[in-house]
Simulated scan of single mutants.
Amino acid sequence: MEKENGMYIKLKIIFACFLFISVQACNKQDKMSRNENTKFSYSVTVSAPEDYPVEVHEGWLMDDQKKFICSMPKAGTEGGGWEYDGSKAGQGGSRIPYHLNLTYVAYAEKKFYTVDADLPVDKILEEFKKGFDVQGRKKVDGENPVVHDTYDTFTVGAAPGGVIVIWLSGNHNRVEICRLQAKEVFVDRNDFYDNAHERTQEGFFDKMFEIQLPDAAQEEIKEKGIPFGLWDNYRQRFKYRFVLQPYDDKDVILTNDIRFYNGEQRFYLRPNELAKGEYHLAAIPFSTYPMFTKYNTEILFDDKEMLSVFKELQSKHPNKPMDIIIIPTFMYTDFKLSVKCEDEIIPLTKYKVKGVWGG
Rank of each mutant, 00 (worst) to 15 (best):
D149R: 00
P145A: 15
D141L: 03
D152V: 07
V146S: 06
W167T: 13
D152Q: 08
Y151G: 02
V140T: 04
I164N: 08
A159K: 13
Y151W: 11
F154K: 02
G142K: 05
G162D: 03
V147C: 11
Y151Q: 09
V147R: 14
D149V: 03
E143R: 04
G157W: 12
A159M: 03
L168G: 03
F154M: 02
T155R: 07
E143A: 15
K138S: 13
Y151C: 08
G142W: 05
K139M: 15
S169A: 06
V147A: 07
D152A: 14
V165I: 15
F154W: 04
N144F: 15
V147W: 07
G142L: 05
N144S: 13
V163M: 03
T150M: 10
L168N: 09
K138W: 04
D152K: 06
G161T: 13
V140K: 10
V146D: 11
T155F: 02
V146R: 01
D152W: 05
V165D: 03
T153W: 08
T155D: 02
A158S: 09
G157H: 02
T150S: 12
V156K: 03
V156Q: 05
K138C: 09
H148N: 14
T153R: 05
T153A: 03
A159D: 00
V165N: 11
P145K: 09
S169K: 01
G157I: 12
K138L: 11
N144P: 12
D149T: 14
G161F: 01
D152Y: 06
G162W: 02
D152G: 01
H148S: 04
E143G: 12
S169D: 05
K139W: 12
E143M: 04
Y151P: 09
W167V: 12
V140I: 12
N144W: 15
V165H: 12
G161S: 10
G142F: 11
E143W: 13
T153K: 01
A158P: 09
I164D: 06
D141T: 14
I166P: 08
G157E: 08
V147K: 11
Y151S: 13
V146E: 05
T155G: 03
Y151H: 12
D141Y: 15
G157T: 06
V156C: 01
H148C: 13
D141K: 12
E143T: 14
K139V: 06
T153I: 07
H148D: 13
V165Q: 10
A159V: 01
P160Y: 03
